[in-house]
């Protein structure tokens, strides 16, 4: 099984639009949305939810007022500053349970917390596994790991060969959880100084975890000089360049209507198809599309 993870470092470079377009170009695959904080792929693929599951984070501390004698030991011990005046701030609690273990009155219980939901859905383009982390919840990395493993199970069950993953922005916990063990990661960047800065950190991250990378420049014509600069970075760092996609207002229009770009009659469809062909060449060197 081959897993392609699309990430970007910087947010808003077009990951989701491009993943939705790829979805229409390959048949036997499962799609995953690993941006569990702010999932968007479902907006472009209109999924029919078939399964819905709760996601639990680590249990959080709760102080039993009747047992608590207000000694303050928990407050002094909590390294996350999550306890004030014998009250736990659930947003600060990381679930380490140290307070419940040191409380001399046994007044602190660890309580299960539903931190989100994950879904198995069907779309016109095949199965989609996606999730929704509750607002202000922790453990997005864990939820990412959950949706990825469910996607792998689904693909195996259906005998599908590919997983295409829409990744989160950044380089932290949910991104690390999204890329580990992936066959290939396509970085979607944009020709801005911010895009370039974030691209280099993203390449560093993929190198750190030994995941092969490719780079695609979206909206390249906003700044052709920076696009050349990005190509130069790819050459220097020996990363295959997947191609460039021009700026097109139609993408905004497609996004505002909740459609994928390839469904709209956009002039950039051919460019997206070319990028896909290059990516597929690297993903499966001995196969023809």
């Amino acid at each position: 099984m081959k897993e392609l993870v699309v990430i970007s470092g910087k947010g808003g470079t077009g990951k989701t639009s491009i993943v939705a377009s790829f979805a229409s170009l390959l048949t036997n695959k499962v799609m995953v949305d690993c941006d569990v904080d702010a999932a968007n792929l479902h907006l472009l693929l209109s999924p029919k939810i078939e399964e819905r599951h709760q996601f639990y984070s680590l249990p959080k501390a709760m102080i039993n007022r009747e047992k608590c004698n207000g000694c303050g030991l928990c407050e002094d011990t909590c390294r996350f500053e999550a306890i004030k005046e014998s009250t736990v701030n659930p947003l600060g609690c990381e679930g380490c349970a140290v307070c419940s273990r040191i409380c001399p009155e046994n007044a602190i219980e660890m309580v299960d917390t539903v931190a989100g939901e994950w879904f198995k859905s069907n779309t016109t383009y095949g199965p989609l596994v996606h999730a929704r982390l509750g607002a202000a919840q922790e453990n997005s990395g864990k939820l990412v790991t959950m949706v990825r493993s469910q996607a792998a199970k689904t693909a195996k069950k259906l005998g599908y060969d590919y997983i295409i993953t829409d990744g989160p922005p950044g380089i932290g916990c949910p991104v690390i959880a999204s890329i580990g063990g992936a066959s290939l990661s396509l970085i979607i960047t944009e020709p801005s100084l911010s895009g370039i800065h974030d691209l280099e950190r993203t390449i560093d991250l993929l190198e750190f975890f030994g995941v092969p990378a490719m780079v695609c420049v979206n909206r390249w014509d906003i700044c052709p000089e920076n696009t050349e600069h990005i190509k130069e970075i790819c050459r220097k760092r020996k990363i295959p360049f997947a191609g460039k996609i021009a700026y097109d207002n139609m993408v905004m229009l497609a996004a505002s209507r909740g459609k994928s770009v390839v469904e709209m009659n956009s002039r950039i469809i051919d460019e997206i198809i070319k990028v896909w062909e290059k990516v597929f060449e690297v993903l499966c060197p001995n196969m023809k599309l």
Partner: peptide, 21 residues
């Protein structure tokens, strides 16, 4: 935010966080 379905979806989630806080 931006005036797209994605912008709106994520604005709504971000607003929940702000309201929790």
């Amino acid at each position: 935010t931006e005036p797209t379905a994605m912008g709106l979806n994520d604005l709504a989630i971000a607003l929940q966080v702000v309201r929790v806080l």
